[in-house]
Computed example of a mutant assay.
Amino acid sequence: MELEVRHLRALCAIADAGSLHKAARQLGVSQPSLTTQLRRIERALEGELFLRERTGCRPTPFGRTVLGRARPLLAEMDALVAEARAQAHGPRLRIGSTASRALPGWLRRLHRRLPDTETTLVVDVSGNALLRMVAAGQLDVAFVHEVEGFPLRVPEGLQVRVLMEREPQFVSMSPDHPAARNDVVHLRELADDRWMVDPSVDGEWDGLRRVLAEAGLDPPLLHADYHTAASLIVSGEAVAPCQPTSGAREDMAIRPLHGDPLAVRLLLATRPGSHAEAYADLREAYREVALSTPSYRAWLRRAGSPLLESA
């Protein structure tokens, strides 16, 4: 078996994700397929690259040596492809983002500012994956959120600007939930509820578990993506953290949490000296959607947020 670029990319994905399950999801393949591919690579190199543990995978000393050679090769290959495509297709802006209601307004502003530039968008639940794509030359900018207490792994050489130092996370629940009668919800009011979290979102599972533990709560946790979970929340089967910009729905109540125990930091990452205009447009797009959400607008006013000031 001859090693190819895709094999090196798979090894780096496993090392960065820390588990075959997460790496397979990021690569868009099944876990059994990725496991089989890893075994073939290890046979070809005649050495074990990862230690399989209960909590995930970590590189062996031999694996770290291979990864140390693979990463620069992948970076050079990605840069070559990016430069070739840019010359072939003309001006292009490749955007990556975790989920946000600010995306449509951001794209609209960028299209208006750069009418002759082709814009592409990649949405991923993993901020770490998007940052790696910027570092590798696969994306030009990435808008990501970082769960408080669980920092993202920012590759060396990226320029990172802070959009929101601390964005509170609200809670979504059935409108029939007793706590939905209140404008602000205490965690103790949700002590008997099942909490839903997407473990593939970097830091989300650990952040929620820490906050609940600090409040003395140990509720059952459900693992699912947030789109699938909406039906569980509406039916009263679960509650879940949500972004404060989440739009109002008749079948779902969204409330701030007392003391704002859950929070994220919003970041925009680029390569140094590039696409400075993207930050200003993102800030205005985020401000627009924040002020259009009554509960979040009220929170920003109570906090005296500088976001209330127009650029």
Results as ranks from 00 to 15, higher is better:
Met252Tyr: 00
Met252Pro: 03
Ala253His: 09
Ala253Gln: 14
Ala253Thr: 13
Ile254Cys: 10
Ile254Tyr: 01
Ile254Glu: 02
Arg255Phe: 06
Arg255Val: 11
Arg255Ser: 07
Arg255Ile: 13
Pro256Gln: 11
Pro256Trp: 09
Pro256Ser: 09
Leu257Asn: 12
Leu257Ile: 15
His258Cys: 06
Gly259Pro: 09
Gly259Tyr: 06
Gly259Asp: 13
Gly259Val: 10
Asp260Arg: 11
Pro261Leu: 09
Leu262Trp: 10
Leu262Tyr: 07
Leu262Thr: 14
Ala263Arg: 12
Ala263Asn: 05
Ala263Cys: 08
Val264Asp: 08
Val264Ser: 11
Val264Lys: 11
Arg265Cys: 09
Arg265Ile: 08
Arg265Met: 06
Arg265Thr: 11
Leu266Val: 11
Leu266Cys: 09
Leu266Met: 10
Leu266Thr: 10
Leu266Pro: 00
Leu266Ala: 05
Leu267Asn: 08
Leu267Glu: 02
Leu267Gly: 01
Leu267Thr: 07
Leu268Val: 14
Leu268Glu: 00
Leu268Thr: 06
Ala269Tyr: 07
Thr270Ile: 05
Thr270Asn: 00
Thr270Leu: 01
Thr270Ala: 08
Arg271Glu: 10
Arg271Pro: 06
Arg271Val: 11
Arg271Ile: 12
Pro272Met: 06
Pro272Phe: 06
Pro272Asn: 01
Pro272Arg: 05
Gly273His: 11
Gly273Phe: 08
Gly273Met: 12
Gly273Ile: 14
Ser274His: 05
Ser274Glu: 14
His275Leu: 03
His275Val: 06
His275Asp: 00
Ala276Asn: 09
Ala276Thr: 14
Ala276Met: 03
Glu277Trp: 01
Ala278His: 03
Ala278Ser: 15
Ala278Tyr: 02
Ala278Glu: 02
Ala278Trp: 02
Tyr279His: 14
Ala280Ile: 06
Ala280Pro: 05
Ala280Tyr: 00
Ala280Met: 02
Ala280Gln: 12
Asp281His: 15
Asp281Phe: 08
Leu282Pro: 10
Leu282Ile: 11
Leu282Lys: 06
Leu282Ser: 04
Arg283Asp: 00
Arg283Lys: 08
Arg283Phe: 04
Arg283Glu: 08
Arg283Gly: 00
Glu284His: 14
Glu284Asn: 09
Ala285Lys: 15
Ala285Val: 12
Ala285His: 13
Tyr286Leu: 15
Tyr286Gly: 03
Tyr286Ile: 09
Tyr286Lys: 13
Arg287Glu: 01
Glu288His: 15
Glu288Phe: 05
Glu288Gln: 15
Val289Met: 07
Val289Leu: 07
Ala290Tyr: 03
Ala290Leu: 02
Ala290Glu: 05
Leu291Gly: 08
Leu291Phe: 08
Leu291Asp: 02
Ser292Cys: 07
Ser292Pro: 01
Thr293Cys: 13
Thr293Met: 04
Thr293Trp: 04
Ser295Glu: 11
Ser295Asp: 10
Ser295Trp: 01
Tyr296Asn: 02
Tyr296Ile: 06
Tyr296Gln: 04
Tyr296Lys: 00
Tyr296Ser: 01
Arg297Gly: 11
Arg297Trp: 00
Ala298Glu: 12
Ala298Tyr: 01
Ala298Val: 07
Ala298Met: 05
Ala298Phe: 03
